[in-house]
Design a protein around this nucleic acid. Structure first.
Length: 221
DNA sequence: GGCCAGGACACCA
DNA sequence: TGGTGTCATGGC
């Protein structure tokens, strides 16, 4: 059995070989990353793209516009991504916090230490571990690993974690066994998501089966 | 018509 | 502390 660090590197190399660089996050600005991170909660990215396009079309995709917009209007603009009422409130919670504490400046907010930013994000209603870490990695460029449902499933199937392993524990597995590089963590998480989508597209089966298939692919290489 | 998608939170025992 | 219900649209 290979050491954890070698196994994680091996998985990365296989995914990179298949998909190449992903150039994540698909957004034009850090603020767009944050909005996308909230909108994609338990939602397919295709639905999120429509909501983001709506916001851009109406020229509402900026901290100041978000601060001014009413929740009801924001909710209607992001309707395509589902849970629009609750997500509109969550986005408002974030933007209110940003203006109250940093005068709406993301760069001021991100000038804090990584741990400090994470703590503040998690204290905002509607921002949980995955959303906070997506923001830290893809909007602030901090070296934190994003753990999502795909990541958990892959690691379980690889025997690297037990079922119901805590989020932070899984995160530590990556961060303690790989070089602490935002570029690497960026690519790794993106590759995991891309691969889950890729296998499913080739054959429309549930992601459980898709990952099982992927595991057999890995064992052959 | 049913299932699922790049979660988070309130509520309850 | 852990389990469960809720939030909701769109693609397949």
């Amino acid at each position: 059995m290979l050491k954890t660090s070698k196994r994680l590197s091996k998985i990365y190399n296989i995914l990179y070989k298949i998909h190449g660089p992903r150039n994540w996050w698909p957004a034009d600005s850090p603020f767009e990353v944050i909005v996308g991170a909230v909108l994609t909660q338990n939602t397919s990215w295709e639905n999120v793209k429509k909501a983001i396009a709506n916001l851009k079309r109406k020229r509402k995709l900026s901290p100041r516009q978000f601060y001014k917009i009413k929740i009801s209007e924001l909710s209607s603009l992001i309707k395509s991504c589902g849970y629009h009422n609750i997500k509109a409130k969550r986005l408002k919670s974030f933007i209110d916090y940003l203006f109250k504490n940093y005068k709406g400046s993301l760069s001021k907010f991100f000038s804090n230490s990584t741990a400090n930013i994470r703590k503040q994000l998690l204290a905002i209603n509607g921002i949980g571990p995955e959303t906070a870490d997506s923001i830290l990695l893809y909007a602030a460029g901090k070296a934190v690993f994003v753990v999502d449902a795909y990541t958990k499933r892959i690691l379980e199937r690889q025997g690297l974690i037990k079922p119901n392993t805590a989020y932070e524990q899984i995160q530590q597995l990556f961060e303690n066994n790989l070089p602490k590089s935002s570029k690497l963590f960026n690519e790794y998480h993106a590759l995991i998501v891309e691969h889950a989508k890729w296998v499913c597209k080739k054959k429309p089966i549930c992601s459980e089966c898709a990952l099982r298939k992927w595991c057999s692919y890995e064992s052959q290489h």
